[in-house]
Simulated assay, not measured.
Amino acid sequence: MISATFSYGFSGLQTAYQGMTRSAQDIASANTVDAAGVRDSATEINAGLTGTADTNTALISLKQNLHLFDASARVVSIADQQIGSLLDITA
């Protein structure tokens, strides 16, 4: 039971980390231009002028993944405390 809790916690940490990395890359590349200094499409040009929906979505996703990371870290911490309590009881 506790080992499964660790697995879920670590899986959540990994998923959150990957999501934060993906969101950070989306945010960083939101206002980039190609080598000639030209944006790839008219959509990107308009988005750059008005504040992109994609950037907003990436920021929201980043915040959601941050909460997932925090929650998963708490799961791992609680499982660690449970193991410590069990060891104290049996010792």
Results as ranks from 00 to 15, higher is better:
Asn65Trp: 06
Ile89Arg: 04
Leu49Val: 02
Gln64Gly: 03
Ile78Ser: 05
Ala36Lys: 09
Ala42Glu: 04
Ala4Met: 07
Val75His: 06
Gln81Ala: 13
Gly51His: 02
Ser7Tyr: 05
Gln25Asp: 12
Thr5Asp: 11
Ser3Ile: 10
Gly48Cys: 06
Tyr17Gln: 14
Ser29Cys: 05
His67Glu: 10
Ala35Ile: 11
Ser72Pro: 05
Ser11Thr: 12
Ala47Asn: 11
Asp54Asn: 10
Ile27Phe: 09
Lys63Cys: 02
His67Asn: 10
Leu66Thr: 15
Ala42Trp: 01
Ser11Leu: 12
Ala4Val: 04
Asp40Leu: 01
Ile27Ala: 11
Val38Met: 13
Glu44Lys: 03
Leu87Gln: 12
Thr43Gly: 14
Thr52Ala: 14
Phe69His: 09
Ala30His: 03
Asn56Gly: 13
Asn56Trp: 02
Asp26Ala: 13
Gln14Arg: 15
Asp88Thr: 08
Ala53Lys: 12
Ser11Gln: 13
Leu66Pro: 00
Asn65Ile: 06
Thr50Asn: 12
Gly48Ala: 14
Gly84Tyr: 00
Gln81Cys: 01
Ser77Glu: 09
Leu49Pro: 00
Arg39Met: 07
Ala71Cys: 03
Gly19Pro: 05
Leu62Trp: 08
Met1Lys: 13
Ser3His: 09
Ala28Arg: 09
Ala71Gln: 07
Phe6Gln: 03
Asp40Gly: 06
Leu59Ile: 14
Ala73Phe: 04
Leu13Val: 15
Arg22Glu: 15
Ala16Leu: 09
Gly9Pro: 07
Ser85Gly: 01
Ile83His: 00
Gly51Ser: 11
Phe10Tyr: 12
Gln25Gly: 03
Lys63Thr: 10
Ser85Lys: 04
Ala30Met: 06
